[in-house]
């Protein structure tokens, strides 16, 4: 009953025009996994953008959703197998499109963060210098140019994989990797003077890449995916998402991220 009320509220506030669209089928409990990544989610404090988005989604859907924490590589594996229903802030590629559906809620660019003493002034500089190692989070994908760089470095054995951002920053400080790919929600750590002092930021000349709710195709039939997508769209339309982002970013940046 309460769930129905919430859904009705969601649809009304979204003004999505999807009058008559059914609420998600809550006949079974769902699973949603977060990954520890900068402002998206910090396990240390159990807070972050994705946590807020998850809470809001759960509230609007009225479904029982068990929220857990996992490495990103594990999340993709479970989404593919259908053992996990949802995750957040995912980006698509041809391979993922086969097993996952998405509901976009923000979009951002990617940047190469490099040590100043590596002598790298542009993307080609980094690739040309065989001694430079790029630190990446296992299973992460990026914008097209960044993906190509990562794939070529992988073939050359010049990738250093990590399970999260924290060890990447540490290894960057220790000069064990000389570069890493970052997104706006990785900025807070950058605020630390010691990292900012020794690094420079190079932009990938790609358009912003949309990020969204990841839905396992195996776990959710297309009609259900569409219902969840409507929920996310509702959160965009009524400004909820923008308000969530404004908790973590300056208003202009928050607007740039959610208005795409």
């Amino acid at each position: 009953m309460i769930a129905r009320y919430l859904i009705a509220l969601t649809l009304a506030s979204a003004g999505s025009g999807a009058i008559g669209a059914a609420a998600p089928d809550c006949s079974r409990p769902f699973t949603l996994a977060l990954h520890d990544h900068g402002l998206l989610y910090s396990a240390d404090t159990d807070t972050g953008i994705d946590k807020d988005v998850a809470d809001e989604l759960v509230r609007r859907s009225g479904c029982k959703v068990t929220v857990g924490l996992m490495p990103r590589a594990r999340i993709w594996q479970l989404i593919e197998s259908g053992a996990l229903d949802f995750s957040l802030s995912g980006i698509a590629n041809a391979e993922r499109d086969k097993f996952a559906a998405f509901a976009w809620y923000f979009s951002n660019k990617y940047y190469l963060l490099v040590r100043k003493d590596s002598g790298v002034r542009n993307l080609d500089d980094f690739e040309r210098n065989d001694r430079l190692q790029l630190g990446v989070i296992r299973s992460f994908r990026y914008s097209d140019t960044a993906n190509r760089l990562v794939d070529r470095l992988q073939a050359a054995g010049r990738l250093t994989q990590a399970g999260g951002l924290a060890p990447l920053y540490q290894t960057l400080m220790l000069d064990r990797v000389q570069g890493m790919i970052i997104e706006p929600f990785d900025y807070p750590t950058l605020e630390e003077i010691k990292i900012r002092d020794i690094t420079a930021i190079i932009e990938f000349n790609d358009p912003p890449v949309p990020h969204g709710l990841i839905m396992s195709r195996k776990a959710l039939p297309p009609a259900e995916q569409e219902k969840w997508r409507l929920l996310v769209n509702g959160m965009r339309v009524d400004g909820t998402l923008r308000r969530i982002f404004e908790k973590y970013f300056k208003p202009e940046l928050a607007a740039a991220l959610v208005n795409f």
């Binding site: 296992r138 054995g157 250093t160 994989q161 399970g163 060890p167 990447l168």
Partner: peptide, 14 residues
């Protein structure tokens, strides 16, 4: 011939 380091994050620890 090949060597690699990976920084795992296990239960909040590297």
């Amino acid at each position: 011939a090949l060597t690699a380091n990976e920084y795992m994050v296990v239960a909040g620890h590297t």
